[in-house]
Design a protein around this nucleic acid. Structure first.
Lengths: 260, 260
DNA sequence: ACATACATGTCGCAA
DNA sequence: TTGCGACGTGTATGT
């Protein structure tokens, strides 16, 4: 079954098993009492305690306590695991460069070590992402607005690619920003950057500005159609709604997948 | 030693051990061949393969393949684990509400099950965060600018709390936005929101505007001191630098911790 | 519970 | 390699 398992190994036994597991490219799970130090983008110290250490053949390292979704310490894939016995204790060290980072786990005791050769798929099929929302809109553009016509996705601009570019029923250019979930003010800023970039590109006077003082939102009412901005998201926070209004943008409430 | 470990248990044995482990509040590590389905904020399916499943007493659940720092599937803390045998197979299900989410792991075979009662600290001391950067600046304000005087941290505004508020050598109000690492355009937008909010609050005409057309950044030279914006970060991207210039903001290159 | 911003975010993609 | 934005982001904090 290609699973190795050792209960309460000596530090030296644990070292042998670890080195064999690294050699085989196994996924390793290590229970033990240990301290952890990290130095790299930041630096951290973790005092003695029981933890679960996971060492992956791709270089990823995870140190988990009994709480939280996040590891208390970790190392990204691409790192290199090394094990050694120093002063009679097992020490596992994972390092990478760019940036230079080192994770060191020093064991007071190893309670359990397991290693498994992994086979089988790792492809996840996910539904409900922003891409699903885009697909949905391209298939049913009227969900955005009656008469809306998508022209391009990921359209490039000086501010980066806009999610969907199209024209409204009056032929006015429309920038659509998609979010799969409720959004805050940041998304409005993003949309604003795209709209602004497109206005510059099209040589349109930014008549309604960026709403810097919040009192210019009516400037676009009468003139020729400028570039419109539409934020498509399930919902928006109050502050986001304010900023949308300031900028003269619209919000369309839409879920990435149809409601049941 | 409070570690339970079972090699190649039957599905029913695995169930018993799991239930005991849940009862004890153990941290569980489970090697096995399984499929995973998730339904909640999104929905996903994962075909058969060998995986490491971690079940924490706080409700967190993690499904790891042999690759990546991130679990391929998970459930946040606060969820409830339940185990059962259905059609002769072990099934582990973790659910939570708000939002309603369910993670289901169906095992074809359990290779290894370990459970550990966790003791010891889980407090991490971390250095190099944004808070360290703030501390550094409050201690040595000249790092921001000669004559800079911090007045308040987390100062409230209609756009949210600004990292540091102070005055420059001329007595002009200054909003400082801190970032612990190299930043993109989003950070400039954040700073702009705070500056804008403070200008409104102080009743200052936004004379130098937002630099919408990029040619007004000198407007503030002669008039009374307006609100300045300073972005303190190790470095900025080109696009962020552009936006800083547009808005008439300054960038100060500074690391969260002194260089060695 | 909601809103907001940080994070050693991680991850994927494109220039 | 860097830049940029999505993510079932998670996590803490304030309201």
């Amino acid at each position: 079954m290609t699973v190795t398992s050792v209960h309460d190994p000596s530090h030296r036994e644990a070292l042998w098993e670890l080195e064999d597991a690294f050699e085989r490219g196994d996924l390793v799970s290590l229970f033990g009492r240990c301290t952890v130090t990290y130095e790299g983008r930041a630096a951290s110290d973790l005092g003695p305690g029981d933890r679960l250490v996971v060492l992956k053949p791709d270089g990823a390292a995870l140190v988990h306590t009994d709480e939280g979704r996040q590891p208390v310490n970790w190392q990204p894939p691409g790192s290199e695991h090394r094990a050694a016995v120093r002063e009679g204790r097992l020490r596992v060290r994972s390092t990478r460069s760019n940036p230079d980072e080192t994770l060191t786990v020093r064991f007071a005791a190893v309670h359990q070590l397991s290693a498994m050769t992994v086979t089988g798929g790792r492809d996840l099929t996910l539904h409900g992402s922003e891409e699903d929302l885009r697909t949905r809109i391209l298939e049913y553009p009227d969900l955005v607005e009656a008469g809306f016509e998508p022209r391009e996705t990921e359209r490039p601009s000086s501010a980066g690619p806009m999610d969907v570019f199209g024209v409204d029923a009056d032929g006015a250019p429309v920038v659509v920003e998609l979010k799969r979930r409720r959004v805050g003010p940041d998304a409005v800023g993003q949309l604003a950057r795209y709209v602004r970039a497109l206005r510059e590109e099209l040589g349109i006077e930014s008549g309604d500005g960026e709403g810097d003082t919040g009192d210019e939102s009516e400037a676009a009412r009468d003139g020729p159609p400028s570039v419109r901005g539409i934020l498509v998201a399930p919902s928006v926070t109050d502050r986001a709604a304010e900023r949308l209004a300031d900028r003269g943008f619209d919000h369309v409430a839409l879920e990435p997948t149809p409601e049941e």
